[in-house]
Write a protein that binds this DNA or RNA. Sequence first.
RNA 1: GCCCGGGUGGCGGAACGGUAGACGCAGUGGACUCAAAAUCCACCGCCGGCAACGGCGUGCGAGUUCGAAUCUCGCCCCGGGCACCA
Length: 862
Amino acid sequence: MSDIYRPGEIEPAIRRLWEEENAHRAESGDGERFYCLSMFPYPSGKLHMGHMRNYTISDVISRYHRMRGMRVLQPMGWDAFGLPAENAAMANGVPPAKWTRDNIEHMRGQLRQLGFAIDWERELATCDSEYYRWNQWFFLRLLERGIAYKKTGTVNWDPVDQTVLANEQVIDGCGWRTGAPVEKREIPMYYLRITDYADELLESLDDLDGWPERVRTMQANWIGKSEGAEIAFACGEDTIKVFTTRPDTLMGATFMAVAAEHPLAKRAAEDKPELAAFIAECQKGGVSEADIAVQEKKGMDTGLTAVHPLTGDELPVWVANYVLMAYGEGAIMAVPGHDERDFEFANKYGLPIRQVISLPEGREYDDRHWHDDYAAKAGQLVHSGPYDGLEWSKGFDAIVADLEKKGTGRARTQFRLRDWGISRQRYWGCPIPIIHCPDCGDVPVPEADLPVVLPEDLVPDGSGNPLNRHAEFLDTDCPKCGRAARRETDTMDTFVDSSWYFLRYTGPDNDAAMVDERADQWMPVDQYIGGIEHAILHLLYARFWTKLMRDEGLVSVGEPFKRLLTQGMVLAETYYREDASGRKVWFNPADVEVQRDGKGAILSAVLKDDGEPVEPGGIEKMAKSKNNGVDPQALVNTYGADTVRLFSMFAAPPEQSLEWSEAGVEGAWRFLKRLFAGVQAHVAEGALPGRKPEGLEGAASELRTRLHETIAKVGDDMGRRQTFNTAIAAIMEFCNELQRFEPAGEAERVLAQEAWEAVVRLIAPVTPHISEALWRQLGRDGSVFDNGWPRVDEAALERASVTVVVQVNGKVRGRVDVAPGAGQDAVHEAAMADENVARHVEGKTVRKVILVPDKLLNLVVG
RNA sequence: GCCCGGGUGGCGGAACGGUAGACGCAGUGGACUCAAAAUCCACCGCCGGCAACGGCGUGCGAGUUCGAAUCUCGCCCCGGGCACCA
């Protein structure tokens, strides 16, 4: 082997070795298993740094556990259905299927080049009918069980392209391609009753102690369980049913508000053109909650009144754009005195505001200015007739009890979580296996006819789903009556695909069943790694789907992911230009020349191709849609996979988001060169594999202590803390010491060998190629990944003395060396012998002494 | 707007209530070289001081504690999610 580190030679050779030995196949059999999973990528074209980081983390964890003697499964696949393929098709006329499969081909090559220990025999792509047929099969079971059902839902409608838009495609309320104002439209869709599982999804969050607290909090808030009451208000012949979390404020209800889509609003509008116009006005704009939440609160009186169930007062019924049809009952009782949105609305339209809950001592209620404590769950009921003086929660119970007696209300639990709408009016997805028969209605495709295969040669053009114009797909016979019928052309949400792929990895070759007994052998996933952006939707749906499969008897686990590492996003600057129609065209940072001032702010940015300026669009997660993904390929070509892996792990702790910068990759490269050279220099004098050094003294003994401290730290950082950056820093630090060490005599050369062997193994999960090569050079047989993780020699950790920091009034004034475990008096005495410490204590009384054994002594004087 | 994070030298970051700035990048000075690259050595938060050392310093303001980057409250800025981007 050459004396100079040449990754271009080492890396392909080592990968060939692994391939020949089939080193990464996950074996079923004896021994502890470890299922390490990373979120599968959308095949967007090229690998970007976010992928690189995600899969490197996964590989480090996999290889670490493999070295600790476990049977590791690390699979890979492709989240291959979705919108970007249709966008690419519109842009260059390539069928989504071809575009997707070409991308997979390219990205698989990139992944292989990075040396990940992936079991490629289990690879799957969700656009393959062998995969998605099970989506269809399971959907039909859910339909039978009543978990899947049909109802109308609201979508974004582009009136020019006559097509449904994704929220992402609605920009400032207008269609992204046409620029036309978007409208809300009601269409029939299939839904899954995730709300049936709301309680279990919430409760079992408590058991997920391997999940980050913030993810559990986000999911709990998303599910949003609230205890309250359902109250019926009579309104002429009808009743308006509302849900409220604050029945204690019922006496403060001064008006009612219903959503624009509420049946009562529609009815009231029949003979009121101005109300009909207002409701039409509410149909403008997109459906996303973010859009709705920021829009100005508007409303109109319907002219109807509702009867207050306790006082008999007549309350005006309004239509309000801030009341959502999808939440609760699509109607609210407005208590402007104690709800911020109602307060704002009442002030705008001159509706009465009544305080019914007392404020803390000394606070005055001001009905012109909102204060957050108006909404606090605290205080007693006031201006509430018979309920006056009751503490708010007692008032809650009393009012609910009275409503129950009258039969106009009851206590109820409400979830913010809504049922999961899975229908998409798109071509590039899994077909929903339903046939529409003019006589029999919606008929499920018989199991024997599955899969319903998606034709792969269509090219969407932006004007709706091309399946609607594809007779070969569309025209079929009714399975019930045999007469001509049409296939459903909606496809499934891609979150369906990603809700169970981790189960399919355990038995991808089974063409007779969705999953088999191997699922229970590997599940649950021991470690799941993926972007924090999936904290809610994907992870919630995957948990839900797993429970559905459990309840169908297909798997025995109820929670799919034992431990979760949420990777921080890799961010990069975005650059764009607006074209003639005002649409933004995004440019990749690699194609932009940027000048910055001393503080890093952008002074100017021009496109390299034409030298013309581009607009900086801010720093965002690397994504296809903003074209700001940085391809690691150029770096891999220059430095090799190990350097890029090392650098991406060293740059920041995995959970933290990271603004992409290449500065620093040189440091990783230099470290590997030094490591390589250090081992060469050592083995040039002869390798001494597998021996334990005896009788070390002085610097050699100290070095061995440092070695075993490093082994302990790296093990803790990789296993428990998962802070790979600090593990690498500790290895670098020790290497710096090792390189300065000049062994004299055999015992010290044996120590050097022990140290190099340990370093090579400690860094192996991060830089597997160079480690594998150096391990063999050090005279060891077999793969470094089969030879175990270095063991800490507890005896080597013992030191003759420790340094204790001495503080006076919390400020560091000196350091003293004492015997390990020295008591307070002994350390105090030693500290007073320090000139600087003595000076700061002189003439003052020591009032308190605090000792942190072997670390710190604080003398409180005054 | 609502929910969840984050803010530490010129830069990426370390500090797991107990020495703020480990490790690395960039920079500066030096060695080697005809020269360059590579490599090696030294310095490297700000202010004062020849030094010993002292003061200040973790987005801003308050609080808890012997001790706060770390815990609590309020504010500012940045990022993620908000159900059809994945």
